[in-house]
Computed example of a mutant assay.
Amino acid sequence: MSRAPIPVPVVGVLAATALLAGCTAAPPAARPAPDPAPSASTAPSPTPSRPATGDLVLGPGGFAALPLGTRAADLDPATAMASFDPEACPGAVAGYEGLWAVDPSYAAENPFGPDTAFAVAGVDDVITRIDLYNGDVAVEGGLRVGDARADVEAAYPDAEQLVHGGGVSTVYLVPGDGGVLQIEVAGDDERYWADSATEPGHVFAVRAVTADTEPYGIAGSDNVLGDCPL
């Protein structure tokens, strides 16, 4: 006599299928995106400014920031060390009707001339001369107004000398790029200089002039910058 097949419980099969389905591996978690590389910061450009008095050095060709030959139209008013008024001196000799004025930031006390650390002059609107009347600004070679004759001769042993006014002063001529330095030293006659702030035998004025300027002295004259020419 044959036996009937033993029925397989359907519930068990379904449970096994569900169990296997529950064992399916979960997908890998997405990796976080890397932080963006920091952008290179650009340092702000420094604001252009005028050089300080203590940083100025007068050479044969003038100042680095204000050389001889500079035209008024070439200057930026925001940073210019000097400005030009073309109508300041009406009636003056042709070419000298205008007047250069140094920026007030260079205010200084002088024994003569304008109350600024330096003075500027020119023909028309072109700078041809820059003067120093005090020791606030250095001269190329390390000299300053107020230094002794021996200091000048040590700094410029080969300088040509111009005796001015019969010995009232001596002008030492130092040519270089862009012009000539004229370093004027007071004579040794104490009686002549007795009523001035100038010490005999010492530098009392320095100027940078164009190379085609004839050497000259200003001692005993009105050839001082700052006002309209007579």
Rank of each mutant, 00 (worst) to 15 (best):
S2G: 08
I6A: 14
I6G: 08
P7N: 12
P7I: 13
V8S: 12
P9N: 05
P9A: 11
G12F: 14
L14Q: 07
A21D: 03
A25F: 00
A26D: 11
P27F: 06
A30C: 03
P32I: 06
A37Q: 11
A37R: 14
A37S: 13
P38G: 01
S39I: 14
A43N: 01
T47V: 15
T53M: 09
T53Y: 04
G62S: 01
L68H: 09
R71M: 02
A72Q: 02
M81E: 08
A82Y: 10
P90V: 08
A92G: 03
W100F: 05
A101R: 15
P104G: 06
P104D: 13
P114N: 07
T116N: 15
D124N: 15
I127M: 05
T128N: 08
R129M: 09
V139G: 03
G141E: 06
G146S: 09
D151L: 06
A154W: 06
P157N: 02
Q161T: 13
V163I: 09
V163M: 00
G167V: 08
S169A: 12
V171T: 02
V174N: 04
V174I: 03
D177R: 12
V180M: 13
I183W: 10
E184D: 03
D189N: 13
E199Q: 13
G201W: 09
T210K: 12
D212P: 05
G220I: 04
L225A: 05
